[in-house]
Design a protein around this nucleic acid. Structure first.
Lengths: 193, 193
DNA sequence: TTAGATTCTTAATATACCTTAACTCCTTTG
DNA sequence: CAAAGGAGTTAAGGTATATTAAGAATCTAA
């Protein structure tokens, strides 16, 4: 079935009965995305959280000068949304696009709320998802504060080798908080050492 | 009782029976901290998560040049720990100190694990705590990537007016990722406009 | 298959922020 | 209460990174 992967993802942390699996998957909606398709744009209500079955998604923010800041890359088996706006039912501050052709599974906010009540085991699952997300962002804050651009780039290379292969340098630069030009010059200087 | 505040904090998200309250509080250990006392130092095993009953705590990281990066301030009614190391039972990468005399309540990792099994309602509570922490860090990443030092400072002033009153500028600078000298000069230029 | 768009590179110039240092004012501690 | 250390300020000079611009390489779509 189309929902094998997401069920495996959930089975990493909690065990569901067949009835619970059935109930859960009845809430899901799978979607195919073409490269460059947007699943969320700024200002739009953010109703869904997405599980990435295959491909790669990117969440980014546009600042007042229309400069992009990449907030996260979501590879297959990751969950992604504009969490603040999803939880608070507010217009999104982020764009989410498919970097490559991707298939995703969407779960709506109202269905998630109901799921957490009907099958409280899911509280544990999402506690772990949120916990991992928090830890990831906290490590990123530490690195942003204490490493140079070059050090952050090398850390990125070892942490996300998959992303490096599939994503343009421009997007990686916007994740690191530097310009593509400067990233380009970093690479040159590196090979000189 | 000493645990009134923490029980109220929990009651914001879940309802406990008297027996559950009793079971939960039996796991807690309250502690008084003098200003500048450390509750965690880098390299030490991070066994506890702390609820701040009063006062203010600060988590920071020391980089290879012994420069401090402030990761978070925890005012009263906040939870704080080195989450990565707490969850993975690893030596801490952070220091946590009392900025002022503070009283805190500690919960040990092994007790939390048991609590989550015995009283699954707590999964919901900690899901919400983690979710809020994730959202907070993500908003911080967005700001770090898309705002200038001056803009981040003004955002900090409106977001954490309490912290501004109780904490030295040196520490605020290290939260913003700038030097105290530069923060000082920002304030001067601001009053000129 | 070619035209146009986008990405990557290189280099010159510009700027936000850092470093160092000296001085003043507080706070802490003996 | 005095002494010492830490915090805040100011300013000169330095560096990491941004901006602009132009050319080469690569991708995209008609």
């Amino acid at each position: 079935m189309a929902y094998d992967l997401i069920l495996q993802n959930i089975a990493k942390h909690i065990s569901l009965t067949p009835a619970e699996k059935q109930y859960f998957t009845s809430m899901l909606k799978s979607e195919e995305l073409k490269k460059k398709a947007l699943v969320l744009r700024e200002g739009q209500l953010c109703n869904n959280i997405y599980y990435v079955s295959s491909g790669i998604l990117r969440a980014y923010h546009l600042d007042k000068d229309a400069k992009e800041a990449t907030i996260m890359f979501a590879l297959s088996d990751w969950w992604i949304t504009d969490m603040f706006c999803f939880i608070n039912c507010q217009p999104a501050m982020l764009f989410i696009e498919a970097v490559e052709n991707s298939s995703i599974v969407g779960l709506q906010k109202k269905d998630l709320d109901q799921l957490l009540i009907e099958v409280p085991k899911f509280e544990r699952f999402f506690r772990i998802i949120m916990q991992n997300a928090y830890i990831r962002e906290q490590l990123r804050v530490i690195q942003n504060l204490s490493l140079s651009a070059e050090e952050r780039y090398h850390s990125f290379l070892t942490k996300y080798p998959q992303v490096v292969k599939q994503v343009t340098q421009k997007k990686i630069a916007s994740y690191l908080g530097i310009t593509p030009e400067f990233l380009s010059s970093l690479k040159v200087n590196k090979t000189k050492n």
